[in-house]
Design a binder for these strands. Sequence first.
RNA 1: GCGGGUGUAGCUCAGCGGUUAGAGUGCCUGACUGUGACUCAGGAUGUCGGGGGUUCAAGUCCCCUCAUCCGCCCCA
Length: 419
Amino acid sequence: MKFQSPRGTEDVLPSDSYRWVHLETTFRRIASQFGYLEVRTPTFEDTNVFLRTAGDTSEVVTKQMYTFIDKGDRSITLKPEGTAGVVRALIQGNLIQQGKVLRASYITPIFRYERPQKGRLREAHQFGLECIGTQNVRADAEIIIATHAFYEAIGIKSTVVKVNSLGQEECQSRYRQVLLDFAMPLLSEGTPEALEAARKNPLRLLDSKDPAMIEALAKAPSILDYLEPESKGRFDELQRLLTGAGVPFEIDPKIVRGLDYYSETVFEVQSTLLGSQSALCGGGRYDGLAKELGGPVTPSVGVGMGVERALIVLEELGVELPRLAEPVYVGAMVDGGIDAAEEVARTLRRTGRSALLDFEPRKAPKLIARAEEAGAQWLVLIGEDELASGSAAVRNLQSREQVVVRREEVAQWFAHSSR
RNA sequence: GCGGGUGUAGCUCAGCGGUUAGAGUGCCUGACUGUGACUCAGGAUGUCGGGGGUUCAAGUCCCCUCAUCCGCCCCA
């Protein structure tokens, strides 16, 4: 019986894993440069963790969760997003204290039961940053600046961050009504489902792709006109901070986000290279979330970045990512030389090099070909002559230059003579 | 969850009712008994995604199913 990976999941094979490693390494570097410490939380949580936070109107929660009852009769859900689990863990660990700012980062799989497409999987991976415990708008800016720094670092240059403000609860509810009124003539002609969806979350009307809806809402006011003075002030300040930090952004009142817990600042980085999907990452402020999880009121802001989506964009852009350190390929041309080759490999490893031993004796052209396949820059080979004289031939596969070195000095030779 | 496309050798694809299923490329072996892209000579590989049906005959037609891609939806 032959099996394949479940629908909407992907294997990362050896030929590709270096790309993942590079992204993870870069993310960890950026996170650490901003002082965000990594947290790891379970892959699954009590279903209520997500029901309480992501909102019972969001599509993610109502239709896309991987939920099941375990043998202890508990309702369990594979996490559909990263933030709720992290906040739950910080509350549980008593790390949230008034007046203290916590900076946390994470790398996690996320699960959503959706129809797979380019850039949309059932198991995907996210890098996330959360700045927890402050209302200061500088935290909002910091998250966006770090996000931008990450994309620059991996080679997705000139991203534009789309920012918006959803204001406070009162502002949002007033604006929802306004939107609904604008859309109602059109909605009443449409399907009952669409009407119901619009009632539940009118803000989502804003990113509709239906031309008629876009036209109907063209005359609708922007949510930005409904912001309280305080929210307006925050948003202006955020823009000043981003400008100061040299982060390109544009204001987009259509950014509303799919999870219900956001207020005030929301943002996305989008790309047209993702097919039918658009968001490379998304984030915003979630001041009410911790309280929903039984913790203290804890104003916070964060971002979740899609790993697979970043990889797609890098691929489309033709960005070459650095490979892991190339090994030195070590082989012998005669059976009796393999012991000697193994010994050379061992000494190379002791000095921090990676060495790849060929288990079989092969003729020189074959060894060279195998070494190239393995991604090696160097070949150390031992033939009959070398075996007899206690030496080894060291060949640079790029320049095709070759020198003969005494076997016990190969490691030192690499330490001093190779670049 | 809705609509559409695709699924033949490791990879890219041809074959569109009729003998033992093909090409290019890659791979393996050898020409060259110690040095890389060429040349030459051999060689291996396919449950034609899976199941069922129609037919004298199916990779080719029909149905179901799985996977994948595109649009809608959703968003990482």
